[in-house]
Design a binder for these strands. Structure first.
Lengths: 230, 230
DNA sequence: ATTATGTATTTTGTATTCAAAATTCGATTA
DNA sequence: TAATCGAATTTTGAATACAAAATACATAAT
């Protein structure tokens, strides 16, 4: 290890930062389910920390829309309503479109190859009808595009929104036909990236998202009517 | 007061919420300047609160990009670098464009009249070369358009970005010619709103912002070179 | 005079304490 | 039996306490 590597500043993290990350994970991955009470005391015990940094983390997640705080009644995992979804998706669309344009300007061949690699793995998952893995890789591709866009602000805000709808996106099962279509759309995305056609990519990403939105919306409405928002 | 008004739930706020709002004000309005240390103890005294809720608020503002936290070294007001600006503006552009499209779909004549009213006042300020008032009213118009778009998520994210660049926007004095041009652009904005031409409005808003960006960028670079980032 | 070194002071991160509010639950009444 | 009340318990919001780290400052050494 060279001196510059060895002598770079030691990364230090506060409990607060660590807890924001971990609790975000619990919410986004669905270990804590929408509407559920967030058990402050229990989490403190499990993480081995006091209430102070845990509560700090809760405030941050609340400002991010993942947690709902009610005065004197503590924290619950935020529910996603149809209205929320209808607000969130257009914004994600606008951000993805921008990401597409920027990515086409900045992306390297290496990065495209990386995306293609993930895509191939994803196709395998599709063929095996392995939804969890497919979903994971799908997310990864979108993250890579955002990364290729090279705009931290864009990534941050996109990611904040993506996290809010992530669970619903996963739960809203695609029909087999829709699934096949989605894979096709991903191929179009890669083609547009390769030809660096920003406008085209923006349009494809937007309609890809619109399709997803439609199915998530249907699922959410069914959930709300069925009242069991598990 | 009718029963429904009288009997609605009593609004309760925690110190945390109050402090997020107040401290956000201090940063956005420039009472605390970029790079400045945030005097925790002093603020606690001035607000008459303990460190706990104040520090919670700081974490939230940090996650919002207004405050920078360095482990074991406390909080400073976030500096806006040219790189930050170059990331933030395109995202604001995409969000404003979306806002324009949505606003054209949803806006009422009443709201347009309201915007026109603010615009008229703004023109008076322009003629009097009253920048602070002009700036205020200018912001107000953009807020009203966002409001007209009727998308809370969009408003939240736009506003978060707008706050980060607000101070630089204000400090970057416009040339008189550019100022005149800006007023003209505002008239175009209103015309597009009245004709409900979403696409046109999106384009106008985007180029309006691009112009602003150019002048803010110049100013920021000058600041960075001059090293006195007052 | 400037640079190092060690010590006092302050600040910071986190844990603990405390009072107020909410919740639980058993006794009581309709 | 079901609804109502009230004390006991838990939870919540906020203040305080405390240890570790950073900073300021005084002294000593070059």
């Amino acid at each position: 290890m060279s001196l510059v590597e060895q002598a770079r500043p030691i990364e230090r993290r506060t409990l607060h930062d660590e807890l924001v990350e971990r609790m975000r994970g619990l919410v986004v991955e669905g270990a804590l389910k929408p509407g559920e009470k967030i058990p402050e005391r229990e989490l403190c015990e499990r993480f081995g920390v006091s209430r102070t940094p845990l509560r700090e983390a809760l405030k941050v997640l609340a400002s991010d829309g993942l947690v709902q705080l009610t005065p004197n009644r503590g924290a619950t995992v935020a529910r996603l309503t149809v209205e929320d979804l209808e607000d969130v998706f257009p914004v994600m669309g606008a951000l993805e479109a921008l990401a597409g344009e920027l990515a086409c300007r900045n992306i390297t061949d290496k990065k495209i190859a990386e995306i293609k690699g993930v895509h191939r793995k994803m196709v395998v998952c599709y063929e095996a009808r392995n939804l969890p893995e497919y979903f994971q890789l799908n997310q990864k591709i979108h993250e890579l595009i955002l990364e290729a866009a090279g705009n931290r602000t864009l990534s941050t805000h996109y990611s904040s929104l993506a996290q809010r709808v992530r669970r619903a996106r996963f739960m809203a099962n695609m029909s087999d036909e829709r699934w096949k279509q989605a894979v096709g759309e991903h191929e179009d995305i890669i083609a547009a990236l390769e030809s660096r056609n920003g406008e085209a990519l923006a349009a494809i990403l937007k309609s890809h998202l619109q399709n997803k939105f439609n199915s998530v919306r249907k699922w959410l409405i069914a959930q709300e009517n069925g009242a069991r928002n598990g």
